[in-house]
Amino acid sequence: MSSPNPSAPDSRTAILGRLRAAGDSGPLPALDTAVLERRQWDPAERVTRLRKGMEAVHTEFLDAKSDTWPAVIRVFCEREGLKNLLYGPTSEAGSALAAAWAPEGPQLKPYDRPVEAFKQELFGDIDAGFTGTVGGVAETGGLLLMPGPAEPRLMSLVPPVHIALLRASTIQDSFWSAVKALGWGRALPPNALMISGPSKTADIEQTLAYGVHGPKRLIVVLVDDLK
């Protein structure tokens, strides 16, 4: 990769030089995180809070058990008349879904090629995308996702419907505690994110409109695995 920035080394030196010349002024203030630590709930309350927070921003929930969730997704796809569902064939959730999927009816479409060979189809012909999650956030409501080779980034963004699998036991108290629990503070994949609902905007007269650029609907398949 060529470096098209002729003045960069000088700028860098000059900027850092000016910042250093300013010197620090005073000791580092202490960080009192008590307000974050107060955010704690028991596992059942976490589920309730997450659901309430996400439903408030138009996320829809489907209840499922550890052995019924593929069927729940299928029923949903059939009911909504979705002709296909994008999935990651090598991801844990994706392969479990595929194993339970009947060949007739809504088609499972694997995201198994680089996007360059798939862009037109992805933007034009996919009705819904299915992803797993690595957790949820109780305080505000939110799903935590770590896209990667098995579950590409655009699965949760481009299709008009995003179906996400969430296991109740993985819901954390807050984003802060999730960062610690998932070890995100030490190492992160090229992309990780939190999603709380379908894409929305209030840019026209503060009127909420859903589905502006990303998915118009977010469906959380909530697996009750607390007992």
């Binding site: 921003v57 995201y111 198994d112 090629r113 680089p114 996007v115 798939f118 939110g142 896209p147 990667g148 080779p149 590409p152 980034r153 984003f175 995100w184 992160l188 994949p189 090229p190 992309n191 990780a192 994110l193 939190m194 999603i195 709380s196 609902g197 379908p198 894409s199 929305k200 990303g214």
Partner: peptide, 15 residues
Amino acid sequence: TYFNLITGPRGEGEK
């Protein structure tokens, strides 16, 4: 709605 953490370009094996 989204809180997006970008830590690199397309990684090894990413599509």
